[in-house]
Nucleic acid binder design. Structure first.
Lengths: 131, 131
DNA sequence: CGGTAATATCGGAAAATATCGAAATATATA
DNA sequence: TATATATTTCGATATTTTCCGATATTACCG
């Protein structure tokens, strides 16, 4: 529960953005690490990182570090009525359900493989051979 | 219930703003006309009008016209989980409760008086007498 | 240590939004 | 019709946000 209007507005702002809401709704189905999110949603890793920063600031996430991986998940949402209502709606959306299916697939692959795939995707462009 | 992510984000955006959220929370306590809102919150009437426009677009308001006055109120909120959660939080905030008290006071005055007061407040500045 | 892998932060140009006075639109009433 | 009144829309500026490649940071490994 927010304690003032300013805080509540900040929380709302945190989810008033397609990627951030998508990430939140995705995580509501279970924890993922940053590169898994980037791969699932097919967006640059830095964008995911920034999205997570905002969601964290709003108090919507908890984290668990495992080596260099950061696993993120949604806080117990009953403590935040706003989250409960929001995720109830989001969880019913096709796009969100599809993201979750995609996440399942991503999870079937070993994390280091997923991560390196995300790194590769960030490369400028593989300038067709120099031979 | 929003039917896609884009729509849901638009709804969230509509309330990711101090004035808009304040107005929504205020109206949750009962209908008011535009000038009553402006007077209660002590903000320019055009700002209230713009705030209402966004809230309307999001589907959060219903209107009732009475002469030149427009009375606005919040839609039945159980149909929108997001609203339910949000207003549950907002309704507990001091600032919102105080706004509602102020609205009660404003409602004790006849509407035309309130409206003209709001109009006056918009004047540039009453350049101290010409006698 | 040096190297590599995962994540975070920065830079900064483009796009979006906020703000509020002024002008335009209704809607009354005389 | 003319005038006043309540609300909406416009205009123009200021501020904030978005986006993502490049770079920094952190953590592990040999």
């Amino acid at each position: 529960m927010a304690e003032d209007l300013r805080t509540l507005v900040e929380q709302v702002k945190a989810v008033s953005h397609p990627l951030r809401l998508r990430v939140l709704a995705l995580l509501d189905a279970g924890e993922l690490c940053v590169c898994q999110i980037a791969e699932t949603l097919q967006v640059p890793q830095s964008s995911v990182s920034e999205a997570l920063k905002e969601l964290r600031r709003a108090g919507f996430l908890t984290e668990r570090k495992e080596g260099r991986w950061v696993f993120v998940s949604v806080v117990k949402k009953n403590s935040i009525p706003l989250l409960k209502g929001l995720l109830a709606e989001a969880g019913a959306l096709d796009e969100v359900l599809q993201d979750r299916l995609r996440a399942k697939e991503v999870q079937a692959t070993a994390i280091p493989v997923v991560c390196s795939r995300v790194q590769k995707a960030a490369q400028p462009a593989p300038v067709a051979a120099d031979a």
